[in-house]
Design a protein around this nucleic acid. Structure first.
Lengths: 413, 413
DNA sequence: TACTTAGTTTGTTGGCTCAACAGACAAAGT
DNA sequence: ACTTTGTCTGTTGAGCCAACAAACTAAGTA
């Protein structure tokens, strides 16, 4: 809370660094004009950020044709710092490493039937993947700013423990401690977070990249066997008092519906989950239903049928889209996001879900003009969570550039 | 974003002022120890805050029995700055003025059938009340830090316009402009906000006062004819992209239920609204149903019957409590608040609602141990929104003490 | 075409100010 | 004698301002 010269400097370093990220390569003079800082101050700040390896002098001189002395472009230096994201999900493990400028250094996914493994075995495999990612960062001459693990369950961020992950069959696993031990107590911070939260963060970054500014309120729906929700409100991740926010899968929206894994009837999951879609769209002996098949392959087949105009498939998709809208409207009324992002399997099948979904929302939202809520399909799809994990580690650096290089006050957990 | 010496100073003034509010009267040395600021710095900051009339040297010397030189207590100075809150609701207008230390300077409510008035007449009456409140502040030798108006509807905070208030029958009313004109373009800032949002803020302050720290995530339910929701997340009001968040009254929870004023069936309002309770608890010719009767008086009668053990009343209350829990569980799953506060009429009847409500929530929440969500009855009841309005104006001063006194950079809107 | 000059913009330098800090110290108690 | 408070003095660090050199465009002149 209390601020001194050091935090003042830290703040302004962060302002400059984030401005370059948000607005792209720029001359010092331009940064000064944009941020309101003095030219001299910006020079000093940029010099320090260059020294820390976070910014670099741009190769290009500047756009021609302008009057006066051309400026020296300053841009993000992707070479020195990377964030690593990892993910444990029902049927795969994944890692990704992003550099400071958002470039993908590495992305790796391996299929694994996590639910039928011992957690310990899964964590061993994951440790291998993370070591591989960190090695790739090292090989590039970079430093790992942090690793964040995404899990489909309830996470207590403070203690780094996974309280409950029904779809994995995990319960009270101290994932951070377990992983830190496996990785030999690494210097970089290691965090866990909910999969949907991290995916929401990744989508938020993506949105910022595309639309420039505006839109600081976003809801992400991740569709898989279960349904997860991630909420970004006013640019901040909504975590809730104990970090258990976004549990939207069990909203009772269809009292006449199927029995849910949680024991109750009519949960949202039971009408929009992937299993339900497949049951509606196919016969019991249809090979697409085979649970041992890769999810992406099953989705590809559904997509093919939809494109071919198969009536039953289209009907099932329209049905899911409508139910998605019925639950979505609840979220929109409560949270009033600017954007509702369809992630996970909803993204793959977005083209057929979007129309019925939007119409269902329009019918149910109180705020004028549907609360101004746009519905978009995720471009990241199933990769959103790992990306978000890498992103969140990088965000720490953007918030406090002094974590990196020079005096490096300590890669504080 | 970008910070300089002035913002550094502003921040630290704010830190000291807020610390005294949160932790109570304290010596300078203690403030320094608590905040991490240097003793000398705290002396300087306190001196400035005293000069601005926000703090004052405490009368009492200090607790006895301690070793060493006793400290001079420093405490909030309630005498110089007040925040004013106002409220337009279906059947009353209200104002309140709070001083910096949270003391109630004035609280005034007048019954008015707003829905059957011309908006202009209502605003005229409200202007009278506000003038009265500001005059009361003046009479105490104080300065009005700002006035915030609470309305039961969708508010666009930026433009200060009320987009839609179904229960008032209002639509697209530029309330801020209208009121500023009536008040003769006052120097203090004038804002509008949603009634439930402001009430949530007031409850949050109340909570902080009681429990000290912890609990930064809260959901408030205001019960009246309609049902409103206000959300505080991580200490911040959740507003949503367009400021239309918290519209919980029309969540479709009871598909088999009554038709709602909004045209759909099964909205939450239709099973937990006051009208529904009365219909369930009484016969058609029961005088309690008389809508011209004062709400508080009708609630008093229901309370009397419940206390007397009237089976039908108790049944109706249990029913409403359960439905409250069914919808409440949705909110708890999405937002994971530490506390769920029952406001409005739910507060008056809380003793009978709480048990079935808590049980319904426990049955439906995914997170372990009910997500740790406590259910409490509001102490402020129907006065929460005005209090919150006054509070929010004061909060501006706590966030930027330089708004008041001395150089007063301008009572910026 | 080659050269000069004016005008504009960039980025650095040195001096100034402001605010926090550190340490010394008097004051006020045990 | 010992402790703790609060003030005072001098130092440090960071941002600001104004001046200035550098780098370029535009236009006028030979």
């Amino acid at each position: 809370m209390a601020a001194d010269h050091v935090s003042l400097r830290r703040n302004n370093l962060s302002v400059v660094l984030r401005h370059v990220r948000a607005a792209g390569p720029r001359s010092r003079a331009r940064i000064a004009a944009d941020t309101g800082l003095n030219k001299a101050t910006v020079s000093s700040l940029v010099a320090e950020l260059v020294e820390r390896g976070l910014l670099r002098e741009g190769q290009a001189e500047i756009e021609r044709g302008a009057l006066g002395r051309p400026g020296q472009l300053v841009e993000l230096d992707g070479s020195s710092v990377c964030g690593v994201g990892a993910e444990i999900n029902v049927d795969y493990l994944a890692v990704a490493a992003l550099d400071l400028s958002g470039g993908v250094v590495l992305e790796h996914r391996v299929p694994l039937d996590v639910a039928h493994q011992d957690p310990s075995t899964t964590l061993d495999r994951l440790a291998d993947l993370i070591r591989e990612a960190v090695a790739a960062v090292d090989a590039r001459g970079g430093q790992t700013a942090g690793v964040t693990l995404a899990v489909p369950g309830l996470v207590q961020s403070a203690t780094g423990s996974l309280k409950l992950a029904p779809n994995l069959g995990w319960n009270e696993v101290p994932v951070v401690d377990e992983m830190r031990a496996r990785l030999g107590d690494p210097a970089y911070p290691f965090r866990v977070d909910n999969e949907a939260n991290l995916a929401a963060l990744a989508e938020y970054s993506e949105l910022k990249k595309d639309t420039g500014n505006q839109a600081d309120d976003l809801v992400l729906l991740t569709g898989a066997i279960g349904v997860g929700g991630g909420v970004v409100s006013d640019g901040h991740l909504l975590r809730g008092g104990h970090g258990f926010s976004g549990e939207v899968g069990h909203m009772p929206v269809a009292p006449a519906g199927r029995t849910c894994g949680c024991g109750r009837t009519g949960c949202w999951e039971t009408v929009v989950g992937l299993t339900t879609l497949l049951n509606k769209a196919t016969d019991a002996d249809d090979p697409v239903r085979d649970p041992s098949l890769d999810v992406e392959r099953r989705l590809a087949e559904i997509t093919r049928r939809a494109e071919a105009g198969d009536a039953r498939t289209l009907g099932a998709l329209a049905d899911v889209g409508t139910w998605l809208g019925i639950g979505g409207a609840i979220l929109v009324n409560i949270l009033n996001p600017d954007v509702l992002v369809l992630g996970g399997y909803f993204a793959s099948l977005g083209p057929w879900l979007q129309e019925p979904l939007e119409s269902a929302i329009r019918d149910r939202v109180i705020a004028p003009e549907g609360g101004g809520c746009r519905v978009v399909q995720s471009e990241l799809g199933f990769a959103a969570a790992v990306r978000g994990g890498a992103q969140i580690s990088l965000d720490q650096v953007f918030l406090d550039p002094t974590l990196i290089g020079r005096d490096a006050t300590g890669v504080a957990q």
